[in-house]
Design a binder for these strands. Structure first.
Lengths: 138, 138, 138, 138
DNA sequence: GTGGTCTAGACCACC
DNA sequence: GTGGTCTAGACCACG
């Protein structure tokens, strides 16, 4: 199987982290359902043109998080993730990102209205709304 | 003068970066107006209980960004920042943070509604709204 | 790889600056083409008999200028520099130096002819001309 | 007497050096002839809105160079400067500046022709030539 | 007093 | 092995 992961070469973000974030998303969003056999470390490393060590670390980290399960001599599988846990994970990361963004807004003294405006600008750009509800006061 | 900067000890974020972010905000928000004499490197270092070198790096980075101006033997000052540039900077950083948050939301396949809900949860927690308008659908 | 850099010990010019100037030239002249892996910080520091920190600063400054790209755990590389940018850079630095020299000449009230004469004395000494054209009025 | 000196606030060049360079030029070019009484330290300091200490250093440095002479309780005068010495000084500084510029040109591998071209661009901009001789090959 | 440069050395994160 | 952060401390240049 081919895992859809895209790496940005010129980013300051460490390679292993980019991969982890994307793989975690694929698992938690259900795109890679429980039990899926992931590509071998060597395969994925070649696929992403990176070191085996880097992939090893990714699999290890995600196994430590309980998202993957490794069976000796067989391969690495997506572990069973409880729905509650999954839900918690999904919203947790996003809520954290919003908190960070709002912290930034507060640091430069944006008003609540300006903050909402910026949020909806980004939201409309990335998640177009087809029911005509593009802001808070409609 | 005393600069209000708060460091989080247990963060993975490098100390110098935390300071830069906050100082940049203070300048761009106008809290530290053009021409303000900043505390000396030694003073701020003692104030924040960190090395002189760390503060030196902060001041130098912000000088490279054009936000500070240092005169040897005299001190470090807030440089003149154009209003347009300032406005662009303020909203730019926040918009960037929102884009990142929404990217995360998309990666875990949150719906637009769920995303808005999370945003308003964070917003209401951090910027309480005194006019009774706490979300998009009221 | 061995980088040809020569330091003048008794100069008032800071060491880090001497290195930056020469390294910048090597990159912008194309002597170190895009993608070249530079020696590690530790290697170059030993090579030039200076502190690791001095070299670190050089690499970091040039990275801020967009001339280098560093990948943690991998090394420091020459970044892609556009030909236009490169050309602009090359002539820019030289033109700036000539403007400074001519300013000096004007400050001591040299005539245009005397200025040209001094220029050609230096030019002939450093860039011998093999076509017998050593000055303006021949 | 009022000495025509212009300081650039935003330059990285130390204030005392800017003043020295300009005062030296005024003396060596003959604008301030031998015997001229310079303004007192306090006067010049106020005139240039800088510290007395800075001016003290300027006068001291130039006295050490033999360009000024201080008489206790009387003031500071322009010293007698031999014509040879004056000539040597004038051309020396300019030649040094040209050597530096040509070094830069060589470092980025400019050809002799390109170097001459850049020189004449700067020269024509700063010392317009009224006899129609703007380059080497005319 | 101020900032600017440089040192030696430690510890961490990444590949 | 690589670069990234941080430390403590020295010495110089500037005002």
């Amino acid at each position: 199987m081919r895992i859809p992961i895209r790496l940005s070469e010129d980013s300051a973000e460490p390679m292993y982290h980019q991969i982890e974030v994307q793989l975690r998303s694929l698992i938690l969003s259900g795109t890679l359902p429980t039990g899926t056999l992931l590509p071998s470390i060597r395969e994925l490393a070649q696929d992403l043109s990176c070191s085996i060590i880097t992939i090893r670390r990714v699999y290890q980290d995600l196994e430590n998080e309980g998202l993957l399960r490794t069976k000796q001599g067989t391969g690495t599988f997506v572990a069973a993730v409880g729905d509650t846990e999954r839900e918690h994970y999904r919203t947790g990361a996003v809520a954290e990102a919003f908190r960070a963004a709002i912290d930034t807004a507060m640091r430069v003294h944006l008003s609540r209205g300006e903050t909402e405006k910026l949020f909806y600008e980004s939201l409309n750009a990335k998640m177009p709304d087809h029911e005509g509800n593009g802001g808070p006061n409609r």
